[in-house]
């Protein structure tokens, strides 16, 4: 099974200038195929730098990135292949749309992979379906789409390459709550249907609590926590210390525990907290 593995990865920006800064420092981790990973950290914690190493856009100052056991920086060809294996959706990806029609824009990635026309067509339609874009939009200019549609179009443009790993950098930033939920739902559905690894970068704890199987917390260029959400959210004090906080439901659960109520550990989504409170009330015979 293909996995992503990094070994002692470090990167320095602006080496030798007054603006020199360590973006990431000695990052080692392994992500097995098919996992849904949430990457969290506040602005400047190095998470964006980290993900750009995964597809070879940035080369590490020291350390290695392995995809399926192969060092992606060992040759130019491998680094280029990594772009297709690890699909990266940047922040505000709608700014990358450029073609005359949506269809052509979605086909940009597969076309760069030198696929046949039929194969490209199939992938474009599949990606549009995953992203919730109807085929009626295909002949429109991507610049005429609405804000939410543009975002979906940009994400579909990466999905169309059928990457084995899909990395999304704050895909819901600047969207309204409905658009946000829609996109998260699409990503979840894509993860299930394709079996691809998904790495979701966000600074919304609530968003990640809903969706991720594993959380990796970045602070000042290093990993400070790594584990399933219910474990990570137990360290609420530490999370607050680095300026992140815990999901609202988790915060309420902790406060209720402090009041002496028997709320089980690991209630970090609204629905699980609701069930816990309801079962407590039932035990107490309130309803």
């Amino acid at each position: 099974m293909p996995t992503i593995k990094t070994e002692a990865l470090s990167h320095i920006y602006g080496q030798g200038t007054p603006f020199e800064s360590h973006a990431i420092n000695n990052i080692s981790l392994e992500i097995p195929q098919g996992q849904f990973v949430g990457l969290i950290g506040h602005t400047g914690s190095g998470k964006s730098t980290f993900i750009q190493h995964l597809n070879g856009l940035l080369q590490p100052e020291s350390g290695h990135v392995y995809f399926d056991g192969v060092d992606i920086n060992s040759s130019k060809q491998l680094r280029r292949n990594a772009r297709f294996q690890v699909g990266l959706v940047f922040q505000y990806p709608e700014h990358q749309l450029f073609e005359e029609t949506l269809y052509k824009d979605l086909a940009f990635g597969p076309r760069n992979m030198k696929l046949s026309k039929d194969e490209i067509d199939e992938r474009v339609r599949e990606a549009a379906r995953f992203a919730g874009l109807s085929e009626e939009l295909f002949s429109k200019s991507p610049l005429e789409l609405s804000g939410g549609q543009k975002r979906r179009a940009a994400i579909a443009g990466v999905i169309a390459m059928r990457p084995q790993v899909l990395v999304l950098d704050e895909p819901t930033a600047g969207l309204d709550p409905a658009g946000r939920n829609d996109i998260l739902e699409n990503i979840r559905a894509y993860h299930k249907a394709s079996g691809a690894t998904v790495i979701l970068v966000s600074h919304s704890m609530d968003e990640l609590a809903q969706i991720a199987q594993r959380l990796i917390v970045f602070d000042e260029g290093s990993i400070v926590m790594d584990g399933p959400p219910e474990k990570v959210f137990l360290h609420s004090e530490k999370l607050c210390e680095i300026g992140l906080g815990v999901p609202l439901a988790s915060e309420i659960a902790l406060e209720l525990q402090k009041l002496g109520l028997n709320i089980p550990e690991g209630c970090y989504t609204v629905s699980s907290l609701r069930d816990a409170i309801l079962s407590l009330r039932r035990e107490a015979g309130v309803c």
């Binding site: 856009l57 959706v89 990358q96 760069n112 992979m113 390459m161």
Partner: peptide, 12 residues
């Protein structure tokens, strides 16, 4: 940023 985004889609 745009260069990186297009490179991520395989632009050369």
């Amino acid at each position: 940023k745009i260069i990186n985004a297009q490179k991520a889609r395989g632009a050369d």
